[in-house]
Computed example of a mutant assay.
Amino acid sequence: MTEEFRFLGVAADLAASLKERGIQAPFPIQTLTIPDGLAGRDVCGKAKTGSGKTLAFGLPMVENLSHADSHWVRGLILVPTRELAVQVAKELRPLARCRQLDLAPVYGGAPIEAQIEKIEAGLDIIVATPGRLIDLIDRKALSVAKLEIVVVDEADRMADMGFLPQVEWILRHVESRHQTLLFSATLDGAVDALVRRYQSDPVRHEVQSKQVTVDEMQHRFVAVHEMDKVKVAAAIIRASNRALVFSATRHGCDRLSRKLKSENVRAEPIHGDLRQKAREHSLARFASGQIQALVATDVAARGLHIDDVDVVIHFDPPPDHKTYIHRSGRTARAGETGMAVTLSLWNEELEVKRLQRRLSLDVPIVEMFSNDDRLDALDRWDPVAEAV
């Protein structure tokens, strides 16, 4: 049913390319924004991660750039993380090939010399993290002065990670008249300021999304003992298909991964100190089911599109309720009900109870040891009913 994309104004060859990949019908954010993007309007889209934003900005970019013959960077997609840069580039590359456009990601953690070689060989579109892009501009490896289309993706996460000053620096250096497409899960505060400063009469579209918190997932809070904590986590992971485990620090990720392996759990870490190839390898193994658990820091997990995560384990309790929602939301996607499990040591109980109050969660913290049968089926055990 490529007619649905054709109805939005997407060209036949691009619609056919989507069909070859099994993409038949547009997501709501695509239906709303693609016609305005194709018309050359500045677009401000409000939608969460995983809502189909990449094609919402990628299709207009490929279509609107395809009529130029010059082989220099004319399209820029700014993203907050290297993983997202790789994922966006992978999703858009088949469309770019339809129009003989060369596209590549550039990000920190990879050799800058190789990226400069790609740019010098000729690129039409780059998908970049702000820091690496500024490095390339400072080295005069590329210029953003003559860009025709700029995309700012996940603007709210850019703000959370402290990248907005870099994003603004880049946008100030775009001298040409250009189209700007901005997508974000929230459009208030610093993101709203970005819209007002750098977009021209943008058309605004919003996809209403249900709150991914109490209503769409199950929550368990487990009191554990220090010496038994890893074993409890291992028991939960073994009972799941795919688990995402959050640790507060990079060192903690490495240490926890090693300890889980000693419990015969296939786990690998993902954090900023790892080489990009190692991160991509771990992600691929996790997506394919070769490993049971990915142990991540909050920053490393941002922007990752990981499907079919049935349990999120807060091995280290999150610092605030927003982080809890961001972490836990990865287990309740596409209408599926997931499980969020928070492990709490005795000296973390007050902190966890404060977190529960902010989330309006009235769920008891239940003490468990690693040999507790309830860990094998947390979804079938109701701590609230048991407490009555």
Rank of each mutant, 00 (worst) to 15 (best):
Q276K: 07
T213R: 15
A287D: 11
I119N: 05
T297A: 12
R97K: 13
D69R: 15
S184I: 00
K53Q: 02
D192L: 12
V127Q: 04
V151H: 01
V207I: 13
D153I: 00
D372V: 03
I119K: 15
A190F: 09
K229A: 08
A15M: 04
T331L: 03
F369E: 12
H178N: 02
V174P: 10
S240A: 12
D138K: 13
A193M: 13
L95F: 03
V195F: 02
R99S: 14
V10A: 00
D373Y: 15
V79M: 03
A15F: 00
P202Y: 05
D254K: 14
R330N: 02
L14P: 00
P383M: 03
L256G: 02
P269Y: 03
V299S: 14
I365T: 09
L101S: 08
S282E: 08
K277P: 01
A141T: 11
P130V: 15
L133S: 11
Y107C: 04
L95S: 04
L164F: 02
L92F: 13
V388K: 15
Q100I: 09
I116M: 09
D308S: 12
A334S: 10
D153N: 01
K90N: 14
G108Y: 08
L123D: 07
L171H: 07
H205I: 01
P105R: 05
A96H: 07
I270R: 05
D135N: 11
D372E: 14
R242M: 11
D36P: 00
W346G: 09
F221Q: 02
V222C: 03
I116G: 10
R6C: 05
S240H: 13
E83D: 07
S288D: 08
L304C: 06
G40Y: 04
D308Q: 09
M1L: 12
L133E: 14
Y198M: 01
A340D: 06
R97E: 06
E216H: 14
R157L: 03
T33D: 00
F221N: 05
D102K: 15
V245Y: 06
A47E: 01
V388Y: 06
V10E: 05
W169C: 04
P111N: 10
R197P: 08
A223K: 08
L194T: 02
E206G: 00
R93N: 08
R302K: 13
P26Q: 03
D188A: 05
F315V: 07
G40E: 03
A190I: 10
L194S: 02
R358C: 14
I137C: 14
A278N: 15
V203Y: 01
F183H: 01
E148H: 05
E349D: 11
I34M: 01
G75S: 03
D138A: 10
H251A: 05
R172H: 13
G303I: 03
E336P: 11
H326E: 07
R258Y: 07
L194P: 08
E154R: 01
Y198G: 04
